[in-house]
Simulated assay, not measured.
Amino acid sequence: MNKYIKIMLYGILMWLIPFLVSFLIYPLKQSANPFFESIMPVVITATVVALTLSYFKQQDKDFLSEGITIGISWFVISIAIDLMMFLPPSPMHMGFSDYMMDVGFTYLIIPVVTLGMGYTADKELKKRIKED
């Protein structure tokens, strides 16, 4: 599969999985909002870790640069899809600053995790090469 298509498809999954979870647990937003707000970053983190591991299975080098690429790409994809849904005249209308404070900022988890995983994988690869 083409690298850029894979990044796009994984990016859509990166947005879709947390969206589906939030849809399923939305009643908590009304009845136990702090719990809802605690669950969603965990879901985003678990999703980005799983997708990054899957993406990196095909890699044998350049993990850090790929981690930066996928992290920024998935972040932008998630924000772009959300903005289409949350900004006017959408049914889930939310102002841009409210969106960024409530949802958008949480998406920074994505590049933080992919960068960290890429850095760690590159470091481990260099260590293995040095040992050989």
Rank of each mutant, 00 (worst) to 15 (best):
Y4G: 04
I5W: 08
I7G: 05
G11I: 04
G11D: 06
L16R: 00
L16F: 01
F19M: 06
L20R: 03
F23M: 07
L28T: 07
K29I: 09
K29C: 08
Q30R: 07
A32Q: 14
N33C: 10
N33M: 10
P34M: 11
F35Y: 08
E37S: 13
E37Q: 15
I39Q: 02
I44K: 04
A46R: 00
V48F: 02
L53A: 07
S54P: 01
S54T: 12
S54C: 08
F56S: 10
K57E: 09
K57T: 12
Q59M: 14
D62Y: 12
D62W: 10
L64E: 07
S65I: 12
E66D: 15
I79A: 09
I79L: 12
A80F: 14
A80Y: 06
D82P: 01
L83C: 07
F86H: 13
H93G: 10
M94W: 04
F96E: 10
D98S: 15
Y99C: 03
G104W: 01
T106I: 14
Y107Q: 05
L108G: 11
P111H: 06
V113G: 06
V113L: 05
V113N: 01
L115G: 09
G116C: 09
G116H: 03
M117W: 02
M117R: 01
M117C: 05
Y119W: 13
K126L: 12
K130G: 09
E131K: 15
E131F: 14
